[in-house]
Amino acid sequence: MDDEERVRRWCRRVEKRRAEAERQALIAGGLLDRGVRPCADGDDLLLPLVERVEGAEEAMFKPFPHHEDLPRHELVGGIAIMQEEDRAGAARVLASRPSLHTVLFPTSAVEGEFRTREFLVLAGEETTQTVVTEHGHHFVVDLARAYFSARLSTERQRVCDEMTEGERVVDMFAGVGPFALTLADRASLVVAADLNPAAVSLLCENIRKNQKTNVIPVLADAIHLPGVFGRTFDRVIMNLPMESVQFLGAAFALCRPGGTIHFYALVDEEGKYLDAIRAFPVAEVRERRVRSYSPAEWHAVYEIEVGG
C-alpha cells in the first residue's frame, strides 16, 4: 500500500509483550480505532486511537481493506451506545461484533444527583445491563441506573501502577466500583462511597464477583465521609468531573499529609482549578490531560500531594 493510502492517527506506543493486554483495555474503553491496522516499530507496537489521550503520539497507519463504514458509537461491554437514533445503523453495528447484545441511544444527558441517563434500545436485547472487563476485573454495569465510563480504563490502571503496596484508599464517588476494585489490587483497604443506592448495590455485586475482601462499600454523601473516617487515607479518588470542586474540602480532610488526591474535572483552559486547590495545604500539584471530552473541553486530573 502506498504512503498516499495511509492515514494519520493518534496512537499509544506499547511494548509488544504488553500489546494484547493494552489492546483489550483500549477496546473496553472505546478508544481503539478498529478501522486501521496496528503497526510495529522496533520492539514496540503502535495501537491506533479514536482520539488523543495522555501520552499519545501521531503515526501513519494502513486502513483495513473493505472496512464497513459503521455509525459512530461507544462500546461498554456488550453494549454499543450510538450518537444518533438510527435503527438501520444500529442493526449494522449489532451485526458487526459477535460480543454485542444491545445497541442503545441516550435520550437524556447525564443528570440528577445520581448522574444517570435514559436510553432507547435501538437493536438487540431490551436491557441496559452488561459486564465490562478491564485488566482482569469484571464489572456488572447498568447504564440506566448508575454512571459508568469505560474510557477511563487506562487511567484507572495507571493510578494503580503508581501505588505502593498497602495504601489506604477512599473513592469518594465510586459508582459501580471500577476505580475502587482496580486499586484494591495494591491497597490494604479501599473505602468505596456513593450516594446512589443502585450504584452501591452494583458495587456490592462487583466486590463479590471480583472476590475482593478489602473493599468496604458505603452508601453516603461524600461530604460526610471525613466525620466518619477522619484524615486516615493515603490516596483519595475524586472522579465527579462536573462537581468535584465543591468536595475539595472533604478530600483534604480525608487525606493524610504526604498523601495524594486525584481530582478529576472537565476543563476548558489549563490551570482552571489551581487557585481553588491552592486554597488548601498543598505540597505539590500536577495537572494532566486524561482525554478529550468535546472540541473545547477535556477531562483533566490534578494530582495533589497534600501538605502538612
Rank of each mutant, 00 (worst) to 15 (best):
E126Y: 01
V121T: 12
G112R: 15
G112Y: 11
A123W: 01
F119L: 05
D142M: 06
T128N: 05
V121M: 02
A109L: 01
E134C: 13
R115A: 06
T116H: 10
A109V: 02
T128V: 14
G136L: 11
E111K: 11
T133H: 10
G124F: 12
R115P: 03
G112D: 13
L143D: 04
Q129F: 02
T127W: 06
L143T: 02
R117T: 05
V140R: 09
H138N: 01
F139R: 13
Q129L: 03
Q129K: 13
R117P: 02
L122V: 10
E118H: 11
L122C: 03
G124R: 02
T128W: 11
T133Y: 15
T116L: 14
L143G: 14
F119Y: 14
V110M: 00
Q129Y: 05
T116F: 13
T130W: 00
V121N: 00
F114K: 14
H137Y: 11
F139E: 07
G112K: 09
A123H: 05
E134K: 13
E125N: 02
E113P: 15
H135V: 08
T133Q: 15
E118Q: 10
L143I: 13
L143H: 14
F139G: 07
L143P: 09
T116W: 10
F114C: 10
H138C: 03
V140A: 07
V141S: 06
A109Y: 01
T116G: 06
E134D: 09
V131E: 15
T127I: 03
V110G: 02
R115S: 03
A109W: 00
V110C: 00
R117V: 02
T130S: 11
E113N: 11
F119V: 07
D142W: 15
E125W: 01
E125T: 15
H137Q: 14
R115H: 09
E118I: 11
E125Y: 00
E125C: 00
A123G: 02
Q129T: 07
E125S: 03
E118S: 12
F139Q: 03
T130H: 00
E134M: 15
E125M: 02
F139A: 13
L120G: 10
L122K: 13
G136T: 09
G112N: 15
G136I: 09
G136Q: 08
E111T: 05
V140Q: 04
L122A: 06
E125V: 04
E111H: 09
R115Y: 03
T127S: 15
T127R: 14
E125I: 06
F114Q: 13
A123T: 04
H137A: 10
E113A: 11
V131S: 08
T130L: 08
R117E: 04
A123F: 07
Q129E: 08
A109T: 01
E118L: 09
V141R: 12
H137L: 08
F114V: 08
Q129A: 12
E113V: 12
G136A: 01
E113R: 08
G124D: 02
T130C: 13
A109E: 05
E125R: 15
V110I: 10
E125D: 09
E111C: 04
D142T: 06
V132S: 04
